[in-house]
Design a protein around this nucleic acid. Structure first.
Length: 420
RNA sequence: GGAGGCGUGUCCGAGUGGUUUAAGGAAACAGUCUUGAAAACUGUCGUAUCAGAAAUGGUACCGUGAGUUCGAAUCUCACCGCCUCCGCCA
């Protein structure tokens, strides 16, 4: 959510953001409604002030005076009720419109309609050269009994999977490896809820848009698609101490995604599943654009360090405006090379939001001059299992079908050198 | 699932119908004292929003929402959350 004052004072900027992000919203409608809001509110307040002024005299009045005062108040009360009712109606629509105003993308974000228009900004690593036709991760899983997709869909339905043997071990190894890295970097490790209340998802901007991609329970709770949701809400409604910023969390949770509208994509394997696990970086920082930018580069670099330690070829793309979420100012996707598909596939997503999320979540800190400010928020994937293991299996396969285990993961897999 | 209790500002905590933004304390900030610090003392110390150049003034806010009342932190109802005991349970 943006500040209505900012919106009013910077209508051109917001209009441009709406255009660049291809959001369907008529800003004029919001401005007109806000004019109306101010007008009604101000007249309601004037009536109320008068009512209170008279009301204060009641207790010290004689019985006759009292009657006269009450008679004076009656019409004011009625008028106030009407204005209040009107204001309530305006606010319903006002909130709805406010929730669809996008955050302003950074100037360095390229224009574009979809992920097709994202721009590669750097690549790292040598794509593996195979003397044979590389198998995809599904075939490799079947070959070594690392996963069971048939029984997965028998038990859990479409996109269901079991991880087995070294496949299961690989998940644990990646979690532990990643967790240790971030603890060394000073992050606070957390295991956070996936089952969250409706209002929690408003804070991070996954509601009201995006509802169809979330699983809902019979108690009207939701299963979050990322640990970002609960982690961001951790401090909701609180005032933080500036000296404690930035807060850096490495949060683990299961992640649930309906993948509505993606029925034809990645139907096999563990690239696109309804349920996976993820370690997520979540940061809260002081409200300062330069700090946000610096930390954004930093959380991106952390992931690149891990990819390089795993020796996985990847590239980084800057997402175009059309591929940005409503609240995102700028986003990088880190994509790992998938030999079987001969293309890069998104394994990490790194973004910053300024105060878009924290304004909704009401997370503030007291600045040096004593004023309360909304903190800035950022997040980036640290390790998404299943996509990352899929990339490892494919890149590390050898001619005889065996899969070499990345050096840095061996300590977490009993020192084993190969799968198979 | 059953019974009871509770939710007040940055924190602790008083307040059960009337100038209450809300006692008291702590913390914080400024000052006096001190070579310096601590202690002591003095003072300042809510957020949001509207009007205003400002001083200032209006309104809202005591978990959330609705209601009663001329008037609500205080009374009523619903919801959310927390605590205690019982039951069940990994």
């Amino acid at each position: 959510m943006l500040d209505i004052k900012f919106i009013r004072d910077n209508q051109d900027v917001v209009r441009e953001a709406i255009r660049r992000k291809a959001v369907s919203l008529d800003l004029n409608e919001l401005i007109a409604l806000d004019d109306r809001r101010r007008e009604v509110q101000s007249s309601a307040e004037t009536i109320r002030a008068e009512q209170k002024r008279i009301s204060d005299k009641v207790q010290s009045a004689t019985p006759e005076e009292r009657e006269a005062l009450l008679a004076e108040i009656r019409p004011l009360k009625e008028q106030y009720g009407i204005k209040e009712e009107e204001l309530k109606e305006i606010m319903v629509k006002w909130r709805e419109l406010m929730l669809s105003v996008p955050n302003v993308p950074d100037m360095t974000v390229p224009d574009g309609a979809s992920d097709e228009d994202n721009q590669e900004i750097r690549t790292w690593g040598e794509k593996p050269q195979f003397s044979f036709t590389p198998k995809d991760h599904v075939a490799l899983c079947e070959l070594h009994d690392l996963a069971d997709f048939e029984r997965g869909s028998k038990v859990a339905g479409f996109r269901g999977y079991f991880m087995k043997n070294e496949g299961a071990q690989l998940f644990f190894a990646l979690w532990q490896f990643t967790l240790n890295y971030f603890i060394e970097q000073g992050y606070t490790p957390m295991i956070v809820p996936s089952l969250v209340k409706r209002e929690t998802l408003f804070g991070t901007g996954y509601l009201p848009q995006g509802e169809e991609d979330l699983y809902k329970t019979q108690d009207d709770d939701f299963l979050a698609g990322t640990a970002e949701v609960a982690t961001m809400s951790y401090y909701s409604g609180e005032i933080l101490t500036k000296a404690d910023l930035p807060k850096k969390f490495i949060a683990f949770s299961p992640c649930f995604r309906r993948e509505a509208g993606a029925h034809g994509k990645d139907v096999k394997g563990i690239i696109r599943v309804h349920e996976f696990f993820k370690l997520e970086q979540v940061l809260l920082s002081e409200a300062n654009h330069e700090t946000s930018v610096r930390l954004h580069e930093e959380i991106t670099a952390h992931v690149e360090n891990l990819m390089q330690a795993l020796k996985l070829p990847y590239h980084v793309v800057v997402n175009c405006t059309g591929d940005l979420g409503l609240g995102q100012v700028k986003k990088y996707d880190i994509e790992a090379w998938m030999p079987s598909q001969e293309k890069y596939r998104e394994t990490h997503s790194s973004s910053y939001f300024h105060d878009f999320q924290t304004r909704r979540l009401n997370i503030r800190y007291r600045d040096d001059d004593g004023t309360l400010r909304y903190v800035h928020s950022l997040n980036n994937t640290a390790c998404a299992t299943s996509r990352l293991p899929a990339a490892i299996l494919e890149n590390y396969q050898e001619a005889d079908g065996r899969i070499r285990i990345p050096d840095v993961l061996r300590p977490y897999m009993g020192g084993k050198e190969y799968i198979g």
